[in-house]
Simulated assay, not measured.
Amino acid sequence: MKYLLVQEDEDGVEQLWGRCAGVEGLFLDPVPLPREVLTLRGCSPDGLLSAVLADPDASSRGLGDVGVEVWADEQPVQWWTLVDAVVVAHQPHPADPARYDIVLGAGVREEETFFELPEAPRFKLFAGTTVAARSMGRCTEVEGLFGPRADPAPLPMELIGCQAVEPLLKGTQRPRRWNGSWADLLVLDRHGAVMASRTVGLAVTGARPSVLGGGLEDITLTDGGDDRPLPAVRPVWEQWYRGAPVEPNLWAPYDARGRAEWLELTTRGWRGREPGPDRTGGEHHLDGRFVTDVQGLHCAVAEALLGPGRYFGREWNSFKDCLHGGFGVVPPFTLVWHDSEVARRALAGVVEDPEGRLTYFEESVQLLERYGVTVVLR
């Protein structure tokens, strides 16, 4: 059995609901958002949007993902993403020829709602969705942004060779009359240790005798969840299935997407370990030969401080949290960063600093030093 279905009770204790030999539909490409037409009214373009409108062939020009902040008075109240936005058409705004009405095609995703929508909101546009995203201008209205949208249809998942126990057993006997809410699907490595977990819906569409025999069942879950890994990162999971990494730089051959999934798996591994006392002092050596992207930087830092397959943050905020302690090592200590020029060059164009003064590499070094780490760049 390679998979366990568990659900936490009111006391946070995991209760076993079933064991399964296989899962079909664990890896899945996301369903693209439906394309919509939106109109930016009274827009004062800036940055990338201004450059696109200056092009005589602006129509059908891609803008990438566009962040939209909805403001009331002096604070943002909502945040949206226009996915893969494309300029369809534009014209001068009737009330002010210096501004524009711009028609976009995009997928629309609501990211965050902080407060209720005001009667007269203002809109700020950004090229991308990171903290350091560049301004693309402002507008008085985004026509079509707040329209009703149907939730995407859930995508099923097949549990193969499943040994269900109560109460999941009731769901397999009368699937149409039973809804089991949500549970965690725990993925085991070849040694039986939990290497990953995903949330799945326990509504059962159907159950039948398993193709594996032995009194087992094949169970169809109506909703396999929306946080399933991409098929492209399957090789990373296969690596971890052999067991928790014990050799350095096993993450290095993967691209940024694979390295991000590697960091995701270290997160689950960290949750499964009992926290021990933090070590401090000493000298740690970072192998910088493969730090060619942000994900590689965090893989290499964690490996230098704690060893292969360990967790020490997977992006900026979690990295900063780890430096406060509670994750196995805490400053002060010395970090000798070998081949640091590789990261300096590779991350020269990656800027998360809101003021745009420091690259991700420079800001990471500065953060380490601010928390009491002596960083030696070699």
Rank of each mutant, 00 (worst) to 15 (best):
I219M: 03
V236G: 02
G107Y: 06
D46E: 15
G180E: 01
Q75T: 14
G372R: 13
P34G: 03
Y254N: 05
Q15S: 06
Y241M: 08
R271N: 09
A304S: 13
R35P: 08
V351P: 00
R344E: 15
L368E: 00
R370E: 14
A260R: 14
L377V: 07
Y360V: 14
A302H: 04
E111F: 01
D287E: 15
R279W: 01
A58N: 06
E158K: 10
K170M: 13
A343P: 14
V86D: 08
T130G: 08
T39R: 15
G243A: 12
D11Q: 12
P56D: 02
A58R: 15
R370C: 11
G243L: 08
R234M: 10
A150P: 00
G282A: 11
G161C: 09
P175R: 11
V31R: 10
P331G: 02
L305E: 11
E110N: 09
L145C: 09
F114D: 03
V329E: 00
A133E: 06
L286F: 11
L4W: 10
A343H: 05
E369D: 03
P245I: 12
V70F: 06
R257V: 15
D96R: 07
V351R: 05
S364G: 06
A348G: 02
T280F: 03
L185N: 01
W262S: 04
G47F: 08
T113M: 12
E119N: 07
A302L: 12
D55N: 15
L305P: 10
P332V: 09
H90M: 15
L33C: 04
D57P: 04
P45Y: 07
W316K: 08
L63P: 05
L202M: 13
A193I: 01
G128M: 12
Q163S: 13
V204F: 03
F333D: 01
A343E: 05
G161I: 06
H285R: 15
E10V: 12
D226R: 15
L216H: 09
A193Y: 06
D9H: 02
G67I: 09
E352N: 09
R234F: 06
V83D: 14
V77K: 03
G25C: 07
T222R: 10
R234L: 14
G307D: 03
P92D: 00
S50Q: 15
A95P: 01
V194N: 00
V342E: 05
T199E: 11
L185G: 07
L49E: 02
E315W: 14
P121G: 10
F361M: 04
G296N: 04
L202P: 13
G192N: 02
G288S: 07
R61F: 00
E362K: 05
T220S: 08
C299E: 01
P253N: 06
L377K: 11
G107N: 10
N179Q: 11
R279Y: 01
A193G: 02
P175N: 06
R228M: 06
G258S: 07
L188C: 07
V194D: 02
D73R: 12
A106M: 09
D73F: 06
R271I: 01
G64E: 02
A89R: 12
G206Y: 03
F333S: 06
D29T: 14
L297T: 05
W262V: 10
P76Y: 04
C162R: 04
G288H: 05
G213S: 08
E341P: 00
T280G: 14
E158H: 13
L265H: 00
G12I: 13
S60C: 10
R314W: 10
